[in-house]
């Protein structure tokens, strides 16, 4: 494992912890998109089916369990926790799941490496992960007032995706290893979705003002 991959995993882990910490300690999920969290839960549930069939390493299994556990507990908090659920802004978080899930399903059926159930679910999860942040980005743009923790959560997620790209580039030059083009394109699309957010995040950081996205 190279440094970019490890840093990517760590920022991913940090993003999830920041979000759980916010929800658990402040008992608020204001500004957090339940739609995005449900999509991530679906992404991990379809991608990590291999924990039952393959063993890669303790690190790999532990990380998969953390991402599965955290995404489902965040969904549980927002839907079921008697205090947290009150802070959920349903009126603003209106993005439709099927608008993203159906095209990804269709794309996975059309473009994949192998036509097996496990492979199709993996490909579907790659496509869905690329766009799962969209409801969260739309919500941020609508609410305007972004609290620090939500801003950091999205920033860390974007950093994780950028580091994965660097990891693939590094592996290409050091190991001559080609990541499959499906992974490449989905990864690039996903990273580009954060470009706009990154711009405003750095601007607010540079000028030391509160993060606000333009309407």
């Amino acid at each position: 494992m190279n440094i970019f991959r490890l840093a990517g995993d760590m920022t991913h882990l940090a993003s999830v912890l920041v979000l759980l910490l916010k929800i658990h300690t402040i008992k608020s999920c204001a500004g957090v998109s339940l739609k995005t969290q449900e999509l991530y839960a679906l992404v991990f549930a379809t991608r990590y089916l291999d924990i039952f069939t393959d063993f890669i390493s303790v690190y790999n299994t532990v990380m998969k369990l953390i991402f599965l556990g955290s995404s489902f507990s965040i969904v549980w908090y927002i839907r079921r926790h008697k205090i947290v659920r009150r802070s959920y802004d349903k009126e603003q978080d209106t993005f439709r799941h099927y608008f993203l899930v159906l095209p990804c399903l269709l794309l996975a059926l059309l473009i994949h490496e192998k036509f097996t159930v496990k492979e199709l679910l993996w490909t579907f999860s790659i496509y869905l992960e690329a766009v799962a942040i969209l409801p969260q980005l739309v919500l941020l743009q609508r609410t305007r007032n972004i609290d620090n923790l939500t801003g950091q959560y999205v920033f860390l997620l974007g950093a994780y995706r950028s580091l994965y790209i660097l990891n693939w580039i590094y592996r290409y030059f050091t190991e001559r290893h080609f990541v499959h083009w499906i992974t490449w394109i989905a990864g690039l699309v996903q990273t580009l979705l954060y470009a706009d957010f990154f711009y405003y995040y750095f601007e607010s950081w540079k000028n030391n003002v509160k993060l606000q996205l333009p309407a």
Binding site: M1, R5, D9, H12, D50, D54, I56, S57, N60, M63, K64, F67, Y164, R171, H177, V179, H180, T183
Partner: peptide, 10 residues
Amino acid sequence: EEDLERKDEL
């Protein structure tokens, strides 16, 4: 053949 590196990525 299986791509072990791909399987390792999260």
